[in-house]
Design a protein around this nucleic acid. Structure first.
Length: 539
RNA sequence: GCCGGUGUAGCUCAGCUGGUUAGAGCACGCGGCUCAUACCCGCGAUGUCAUUGGUUCGAGUCCAAUCACCGGUACCA
């Protein structure tokens, strides 16, 4: 429900196409959103995090038949749990899961058609294409042209798949007058340079729009697995007016009751649509144009991430993941190696912001061992152990004002939340991680410099020992908060081991990161290693 | 073909508007320590900054050309 006390933060993943089982790429995109959603909740926002599935279209109907399902709906129903279960396993904290076959989407899409009709940006025309009779497949003019060129059979119009001659077909279709929005879109990009992120993607979008826009075919008569056009029974909605609209459907668009209207007013526009770079155009060109046409506010940002590739162990080169190459890595493979939280940490902090990235199990092990086992996990281990050992299973008793004393860790921790937020706010997780790891490394360094094991042997230095351990525990507490969006369960565990369970799931991160928050004289438990070191098979 | 981008240590990348001996993390080698997950801390080596030419007192940083790689060139999400 809408919470008017806090600002809304609405973030979405694309809706994933039902025909492809969830893979490393979809998990990556969903994790990007999850980390942002968790961060924003901690930062005091009223978050809605949406993901879901795109279930309409000709290919879904075909897949259903091929898999022996009676209806496309039954096929979709069988696939939805694959996504939901994986998101659950990967600690994805989505607040909603939309499926385009749901009644709410049906209602919203039909409502959109009426608004589009009123807008004057809709007209009926004909959509030209090429049809391969034996393959029963449609191809666009460009697909055919491209394959003819590659095959060096220009102008012959041969099927890209089987090479046989194609038939020219014309289909009646509704068109959205995308061409009318060129200037408005360019103005949007000028006025909101951060509409498309990272910034280097903006150039691609802009040059595309500058090259001129064609109107967009938005309905089909050649198949019927889709939402009917309300004023024309022959037509079903083609992808654009269906898939993209899900973002608005999920926050009450088209509904007339007071609660829904309030929800929509509170939530829309979205702050972030996170998408793969392959669908950037749909979100940065078509989608804003649609919204302009019907007079709805535009989303604030579209963030496009890169693709994950696999590093070939022998050649060192990045390759596309594919079943035929046999180089595909499944989410489960990564979970098996790193655990869920190690998985999240690796993909969120070792993939350069918005860029493609070649991943490898070797690199995963390195990052896991270096950052999680050796640095962060071991810091927690040694610090909690010393606290328990020197203070009888507890944190040291603290005198009032202890937190005001200067020390190297306090110096680094001061303002750390702000530095971290600058990166998190723009989804630069690598940069945010670096800020946190600076404190982790400093804390390990501080232990060496202050030699608490030596101080503990000298009763005259008891006060000094209290300060050392308190500074360590305090640093760990702050790091746990900052790492929580990436590794929520580990951070919660760390706080619990310091008897700070009340701080888990804070919604005031800035306050939580103020120096001086630990409790004195409470139980502390060393516990098992958070991230057991992985044995690397080095020869 | 056209448009755009990239090319900096073994790997992943920083290097803003040109200015002393080119940086970080990881990986690697040596030394120290022992609270800790054989961990941590210190020290160290490595780069003709893709190539060539140009502008400049001075260029990784600007310009041109060349080579290599990548993306886009729209209705598959």
């Amino acid at each position: 429900m809408a919470n008017d006390q806090k600002p809304s933060f609405y973030i979405t993943t694309p809706i994933y196409y039902v025909n492809a089982a969830p893979h490393l790429g979809t998990a990556y995109c969903t994790m990007l959103c999850d980390v942002q959603a968790r961060y924003r909740r901690a930062a005091g926002y009223d978050v809605k995090f949406l993901t879901g599935m795109d279930e309409h279209g000709e290919k879904v109907a075909e897949a259903a038949a091929n898999h022996g399902f009676d209806t496309p709906q039954a096929w979709c129903d069988s696939q939805a749990p694959l996504f939901k279960n994986l998101w659950h396993e990967l600690e994805i904290s989505n607040d909603d899961f939309i499926r385009t076959t749901e009644p709410r989407q049906h209602h919203a899409v039909q409502y959109l058609w009426e608004r589009m009709k009123e807008s004057g940006y809709l007209y009926k025309g004909s959509y030209d294409g090429w049809y391969c009779v034996p393959e029963e497949t449609y191809f666009t003019e460009n697909q055919v042209k491209k394959s003819d060129e590659e095959r060096e059979t220009p102008g012959q119009h041969l099927c890209p798949d089987c090479g046989r001659p194609l038939e020219r077909v014309q289909e009646e279709s509704y068109f959205f007058k995308l061409s009318a929005f060129q200037d408005k879109l360019l103005a949007l990009y000028d006025e909101h340079p951060d509409f498309v992120q990272p910034s280097f993607r903006m150039n691609e979008v802009r040059s595309f729009v500058e090259g001129g826009l064609n109107d967009l075919s938005v309905s089909r008569t050649s198949f019927d697995w889709g939402i009917p056009v309300p004023f024309d029974d022959e037509h079903v909605t083609y992808v654009w007016f269906d898939a993209l609209l899900n973002y608005m459907t999920a926050v009450g668009y088209s509904l007339d009751d007071d609660a829904s209207k309030a929800e929509y007013a509170h939530r829309w526009p979205a702050q972030y649509h996170v998408v793969g770079k392959d669908i950037i155009r749909f979100h940065c060109v078509i989608w804003p144009a649609m919204l302009m046409a019907i007079g709805e506010p535009l989303p604030e940002h579209v963030f496009a991430h890169g693709f994950l590739t696999v590093r070939n162990a022998e050649t060192g080169k990045a390759e596309k993941m594919s079943k035929s190459r046999g180089n595909a890595i499944a989410p489960q493979d990564v979970v098996d190696l790193l655990g869920v939280e190690g998985y999240r940490y690796y993909f969120m902090t070792d993939v350069a912001h918005g860029e493609d990235s070649a991943i490898s199990f070797e690199r995963m092990e390195q990052v896991y061992n270096a950052d999680l086992a050796n640095s962060w996990g071991n810091l927690v281990s040694r610090s909690l152990n010393m606290s328990a050992k020197y203070f009888d299973g507890k944190t040291p008793e603290l005198e009032a004002g202890w937190a005001q004393k200067d020390n190297p860790l306090r110096a680094i921790a001061t303002g750390i939340e702000k530095r971290y937020a600058e990166h998190m706010d723009v989804m630069d997780y690598v940069g945010a991680k670096d800020v946190v790891m600076e404190l982790v490394h400093a804390a390990n360094h501080y232990i060496e410099d202050s030699t608490p094991w030596a101080v503990a042997k000298d009763e005259a230095r008891a006060g000094e020992l209290v300060d050392i351990i308190a500074n360590l525990l305090e640093s760990i507490r702050i790091c746990a908060h900052l790492l929580s969006p990436f590794m929520p369960e580990t951070s919660a565990e760390v706080l619990r081991r310091m008897s700070l369970e009340a701080e888990v799931d804070t919604c005031d991160l800035a306050a939580a990161c103020e120096w001086g928050g630990i409790a004195g004289g409470v139980e502390v438990t060393k516990g098992d290693a958070l991230f057991p070191r992985l044995a690397t098979d080095k020869k």
